[in-house]
Amino acid sequence: MITVDRVTKIFKTKKETIYAAKSFSFEIGKGEVVGLLGENGAGKTTLLRMIATLLEPTEGRISVSGFDTIMQPMEVKKRIGVLFGGETGLYERLTARENLEYFAMLYGMSEHEIKVRIDSLAVKFGMKEYLHRRVGTFSKGMRQKVAIARTLIHDPEVILFDEPTTGLDITSANIFRQLIHQLRGEGKTIIFSSHIMEEVQLLCQSVIMIHKGEMIYHGSLQDLYEEEQSKDLNYIMMSKVVRGA
């Protein structure tokens, strides 16, 4: 479903060359939920942006559902839903419903499909009471709910979430976690970054750990627990960062 083959991303300034990703290689299959772990600046968002076709790798190749992110970006975009932390992508002067309708139309959905999908997502996320209010009046948590709905409006095969529960209250965060379980049951492929280790342990089958642009682990959580002889993911992450491998 997602193949990352020897991918490197370099950012150059006048003073230095920064390796945001150093020769990443991994595959993620259909229906997998993968946690992306690393400190701020490790390269998590850069990796997600390359998969989403928003950045081009300096070296290497990425494919999503068999489509190359550089050669066939429009085919990739049709099949992915993306939500980056702090970037809701919503228009403040439009209502929640108008925002969702707009993005749905960009994906070529029919009026009937749009109505059914919005009504379903509104119930799922508890948004019915403010669907007709302008987004500019919303709290952070309300915006995040609409942003998640926008990400899912076209029923994508692959979903990329960057800190998806940021700004959500406990109830909304739990609804999101239930949604992940449901999406996995539907065969969706999901990558999400999170600093909440309990969330990763609850939702993910496998993890990718990144430190300073280097991938220091990719594999199942169960294999990781056995390898480290611990189920304390916070401890394991810090231990691997210190060891660098």
Rank of each mutant, 00 (worst) to 15 (best):
F125S: 10
D68R: 09
V116K: 12
I80D: 04
A149Y: 12
V76P: 07
T137N: 12
M105H: 08
M74L: 14
V135P: 07
G81H: 05
M142D: 02
K77M: 13
D162I: 07
Y130F: 15
E157D: 15
E163N: 09
F125H: 11
E113F: 03
S139I: 04
Y130Q: 03
R97F: 14
I70R: 11
R133P: 06
V158T: 13
I153Q: 10
S65Y: 04
L106T: 12
I159E: 08
L100H: 06
T151Y: 08
R79Q: 14
K77W: 11
L100R: 02
E101Y: 05
E129S: 15
Y130M: 03
D155H: 13
T165I: 14
T151M: 14
T88Q: 01
L83D: 13
V146G: 01
G66H: 06
L152I: 11
G60V: 06
M127Y: 10
V116G: 00
Y91W: 14
T151R: 01
I159H: 06
G60K: 05
V158H: 02
P73Y: 13
L100F: 11
S110T: 15
N99E: 13
G66S: 02
D68N: 13
M142E: 09
K124Y: 13
E87H: 14
P156L: 03
Y107P: 00
R97G: 10
T137L: 07
G126P: 11
R117K: 14
G81I: 03
F67A: 06
T88A: 15
E87W: 02
F84Y: 13
T165Y: 09
N99G: 08
S65E: 15
D169K: 01
A147M: 08
V158C: 00
L90F: 11
L83V: 07
I159M: 06
T165H: 04
M109I: 11
G167M: 02
